[in-house]
């Protein structure tokens, strides 16, 4: 057994929050620079230039990229040969989020109750997904998810006899309806199969995949390419003002499902994709 103190987890999560809030990942910046070359709308190009300039200022001055610094979503892959010392895992993660959001002057955007709406004051609790995996390491992935894009996500239980075209239509409709409100250019995560909750979780996990890395399945890879093309023909464009860059990527994940089900979930992410990961 490898012993790891939860204090190490707190420290790591704190640093992931601090970095994610101000440092746009390189794959997003590359995709934006590519989009600048292909975007046909002058207004759209101007918006992409502002997004790139914003990333430069945010990184240099350690200022949050967006005023909505997000709900912390933490994916943990916990090696089964790890023994945790000094306290409980989820408490350690939340403590890291609390410390990171205070230290980084990040906005606290968590309501304690969906109806009473009182702010918890330290951006906790995080949404935490833990998976036990082989090995003696801990992988921590943090996505600070903004509310505007999350609100435009959707899921639907299709019939097992539904066609690929019907599913495609639902994905395209969801992206089009997300429109200007979700802060395009978007990243689109799709979870296909599993059950009600696992399709949504797959859609979220699909957003963690770097831009440009296609699904390893040949059919899915081809579908991702053709769907991205169709999304960018919707005309929504950067911030919805019209243009040929509505999404930077669509990542699809699939898994087995019940013979009577075909769940599909679409998770929408804005261009300000706050994501950092590390391994302890």
């Amino acid at each position: 057994m490898r012993e790891i103190s939860t204090k190490k987890i707190t420290e790591t999560v704190k640093n992931l929050c601090l970095e994610a809030g101000v440092d746009l990942p390189a794959d997003i910046l590359d995709a934006l620079n590519d989009a600048l070359k292909t975007e046909e709308s002058p207004l759209g190009r101007e918006i992409i230039r502002q997004i790139i300039k914003n990333a430069e200022i945010a990184k240099k001055e350690k200022m949050p990229l967006c005023q909505d610094t997000g709900l912390a979503v933490v994916f943990i892959e916990l090696g089964q040969a790890v023994r945790l010392l000094d306290g409980q895992l989820e408490e350690a993660v939340n403590e890291g989020v609390s410390q990171g959001y205070h230290k980084g002057f990040l906005r606290k955007s968590v309501a304690a109750d969906p109806l009473i709406r009182e702010n918890t004051g330290d951006n906790t609790p995080a949404v935490i997904h833990t998976e036990i995996v082989p090995g003696d390491k801990i992988r921590l992935q943090l996505m600070a998810k903004g509310g505007g894009a999350e609100n435009r996500s959707a899921s639907r239980m299709f019939k097992p006899t539904s066609t690929k075209d019907e599913i495609e239509q639902f994905i395209l409709e969801t992206v089009e309806k997300a429109g200007p409100n979700a802060c395009p250019p978007l990243i689109v995560g799709v979870g296909l199969g599993g059950n009600f909750e696992s399709s949504a979780l797959m859609a979220k996990k699909a957003l963690l995949r770097p831009i440009g890395r296609r699904n390893s399945g040949f059919d899915t890879c081809k579908w991702e390419k053709s769907l991205l093309d169709k999304i960018n023909k919707l005309g929504v464009g950067p911030m919805g003002v019209g243009g040929t860059t509505t999404a930077l990527a669509i990542n699809i994940e699939r898994r087995p499902c019940h013979i009577s089900s075909l769940p599909v979930a679409v998770n929408i992410e804005c261009h300000a994709h706050r994501f950092k990961e590390t391994v302890i």
């Binding site: 101000v22 918006i47 502002q50 997004i51 300039k53 914003n54 200022i57 945010a58 001055e61 200022m63 949050p64 990229l65 967006c66 005023q67 903004g146 505007g148 802060c183 950067p238 911030m239 804005c270 261009h271 300000a272």
Partner: peptide
């Protein structure tokens, strides 16, 4: 644009 808050 949303998400350009440092610039704005």
């Amino acid at each position: 644009p949303g998400g350009v808050a440092a610039l704005l």
